[in-house]
Design a protein around this nucleic acid. Structure first.
Lengths: 125, 125, 125, 125
DNA sequence: GTGGTCTAGACCACT
DNA sequence: GTGGTCTAGACCACA
């Protein structure tokens, strides 16, 4: 599963969104797979059910999962990203990379880091 | 200077923090340079002085600037990043890159994007 | 609880920081315990919520407490002092002791005073 | 002389007060000795003359120095401490020692530290 | 319910 | 002039 860090600045529902995204990306949750219910997650993470639901709602809006009332939530077959999402993500990468460079991280370290992420993922497909 | 987006999800003080970081990184604000006063920024951005001050406090804690009461705030000579900061930034890059890959952005697009950021910065020094 | 001295030179938020530190040190607030909410303290001490929040923010940065938005603030399990903190505290002791000696306080008075503080605390554990 | 730390949280005039006190305590400035003029200090420390004067005023009020108009300022022969001063200093020591203990500094370290300060001073007389 | 952000505006200490 | 503190009170996101 995934861990929550209550002391983190990221809000709990965001951490849950990230955690589920990560499980989908890693293949731990395959397309069409049933996602644990709100109740299960609420109990497993000792988190308020409302918080879980907010995370699900967010994932649904972003097209990662879909919900069948009365049956549960499932991983979307085809993740349809919002065209703006790519821009947001690239902006985030840009900001972080610039700050890393300024703080003294070497260009090669960054390039290798990115390459490693890319090759890990490529290996999986 | 920089623009504020009142509709953005990022809070105003965070946008100011980012904006000033960007000015320092780009060299627009050199080490030791005086940063516009709280009142000037407050008037210039039509934002409450308290909000500006909160941004300055954040920048000071992160070691980007230092403040001399009665004189003003100045860009730190040597930015001493918290050892944890690099980790946070790399995590952020990892999360974004993984999501970009999953959403269909090609590895080459990402690599080129990162290379462009790195070479832009290298060119400046 | 603790008292505020509005006439003191120490600012209100600093007195609150000190007061809560003292409660943690004395064991009145155990590790993991929930600290009264911003609103409760605000009402109890008749101080503006912003001022309480500033005290909490300071305590959080120094690692005494951690905050979970929507839940409240809690005493940190393990207080991880900044390595510089010890230096600051020792410097403060040095300055005060030197001034006491110069003003005529006898070495024995000071030694006894320090011993008393140490033995009080040791007795508690 | 002494150094100023513009980045310190202590205000500049307080640092000057501390610095001159330390010089008097250490014997670097003997009783009756003339203290450098406001202009000299202002130039030497690159600090606003008003700030120096505020420091002098404070020292005079606390009985450390006296000023002869037109001649300059001099170290008092007998420092007459305000009875409240001792209490303030002891309180400060208490707070710091308690925090040191709580943060894991050993009682012996503290005792030795205090003893060293005391013996350094005794040796001088 | 909780804390986080923001505005409006006052007052103080310091340079 | 500068930043620092504080109050009063609103609004929002989160649990």
């Amino acid at each position: 599963m995934f861990q929550l860090d209550l002391k983190s600045k990221r809000s709990i529902y965001e951490q849950i969104v990230d955690g589920i995204k990560r499980m989908i990306i890693s293949g731990e949750l395959a397309a069409g797979a049933k996602i644990p219910s709100v109740r299960e997650l609420s109990a497993g993470l000792t988190v308020n059910p409302n918080t879980i639901q907010k995370a699900f709602r967010t994932l649904e809006q972003q097209g990662w999962i879909y919900t069948v009332p009365g049956r549960g939530s499932f991983v979307s077959g085809s993740h349809q990203p919002d065209p703006d999402d790519q821009k947001v993500l690239l902006d985030s990468v840009e900001r972080s990379v610039k700050e890393l460079l300024f703080s003294g991280t070497s260009p090669d370290t960054i390039r290798n880091f990115v390459d490693r992420i890319i090759s890990e993922r490529s290996g999986k497909e």
